[in-house]
């Protein structure tokens, strides 16, 4: 900048040169200076986020021919996901029978369901705890918060694995029940199914649900609660009419924070899901790995992302999240 203005400004001492003008405009414009400061981060994020996603989109339109990629544009991968079956069986025999390759749609729907169940479980379990933290704990709040977050600083993989020890054949539950004399043989239906995956996900993402709800509850003006009581509301009514609505922004944030990452989770279903508990993430991984069909994998993952985005936008719009946030401020 300086050298440029020197070179350009040599001619006229009275009239500022082009470079000086640019420099002055730059210093005067807040936006330009801001963007100059922002540009390294923005460039890196753009190069590492937008470019890979663009490459993934492009890959989704190509085809895998043995070990090479055929780069002619085709919609074949997307067609493979939604292609109707030639001779579809009755809907009552097989819900997904109308599709030629039902596995993708079936697993996507199943993953969304499991993720939704995990989200609900996680948020419903976390709410009373967040309420306790915000309203009942008066002293040592930080100790309670640390106590809650510490388990989530350990390895995610080992936390998931721990559920295998709890639900497994010789696990905590089975040993406990046998020890109590309630059952003779270990129960086998505890592990390797969608329920095990849902429980594990609900546990693994507990911190993501508790913290936003807690922050939202903590922000509530206590005088509003006093006003409700003074005006004759019972504690239950007060909770229903004041506390719950005011804590909705945090609750919705919690729902999104758990739902979005769990749909595509790979680790949990592969460790505790068994064959019946696999999710869409496992299929995507195998398409990029053993199945060696990266273009189809790209298409499936983009469809998954699109479906999640649409569902999230729909949800946010339905509950009026933006209005809520504005009111909060």
């Amino acid at each position: 900048m300086t050298t440029a203005s020197n070179i350009l400004g040599v001619g006229g001492a009275a009239r500022p040169g082009f470079g000086t003008k640019v420099r002055r405009a730059f210093l005067r414009s807040e936006g330009l200076r801001g963007y100059a400061l922002l540009s390294p981060t923005l460039l890196v994020m753009f190069a590492m986020m937008v470019a890979p996603l663009a490459a993934l989109v492009a890959l989704g339109f190509w085809t895998q021919v043995y070990f090479d990629i055929d780069r002619t544009f085709t919609l074949a991968n997307y067609w493979a996901i939604i292609q109707p079956a030639d001779d579809p069986p009755s809907v009552f025999d097989d819900v997904y029978g109308f599709l030629e390759n039902p596995i993708y749609v079936k697993l996507l729907v199943k993953s969304l369901g499991m993720s939704l169940a995990a989200t609900l479980a996680s948020v419903l379990l976390a709410y009373p705890m967040a309420y306790f933290l915000a309203f009942r704990v008066k002293r040592h709040k930080l100790i309670w918060l640390t106590l809650i977050t510490v388990p989530f600083w350990t390895s995610y993989l080992l936390r998931v694995f721990a559920w295998k020890i709890i639900l497994g054949y010789n696990g905590v539950i089975n040993s406990g029940l046998i020890g109590l004399g309630l059952i003779d043989q270990p129960l086998e239906f505890l592990l390797y199914n969608p329920t095990a995956v849902t429980i594990t996900l609900a546990h693994a993402f507990a911190a993501y649900s508790i913290l936003p709800i807690y922050v939202s509850l903590e922000k509530i003006d206590r005088s509003l609660l006093e006003a409700a009581t003074d005006l004759g509301d019972s504690p239950a009514r007060r909770f229903w009419r004041v506390t719950l609505p005011l804590s909705m922004p945090g609750t919705i944030a919690a729902i999104l924070l758990v739902f979005i990452p769990t749909v595509g989770d790979y680790v949990t279903p592969s460790l505790v899901g068994g064959t019946s508990g696999i999710m869409i993430g496992n299929v995507i991984q195998s398409l990029f790995g053993k199945a060696n069909n990266a273009p189809l994998g790209a298409a499936v993952s983009l469809v998954m992302m699109l479906v999640i985005t649409v569902l999230v936008c729909l949800f946010v719009w339905l509950v009026g999240y933006r209005r809520m946030r504005k009111r909060e401020v």
């Binding site: 986020m49 993934l56 990029f288």
Partner: peptide, 29 residues
Amino acid sequence: RLPGKGPVTGLIMLPLVVPGIVLGIALLV
């Protein structure tokens, strides 16, 4: 005071809402 602050912030936050597996394969590709 930046014009277009919202979209820019959104772009930088994007990795937090894109599923990890999609991010992983996109970077691999």
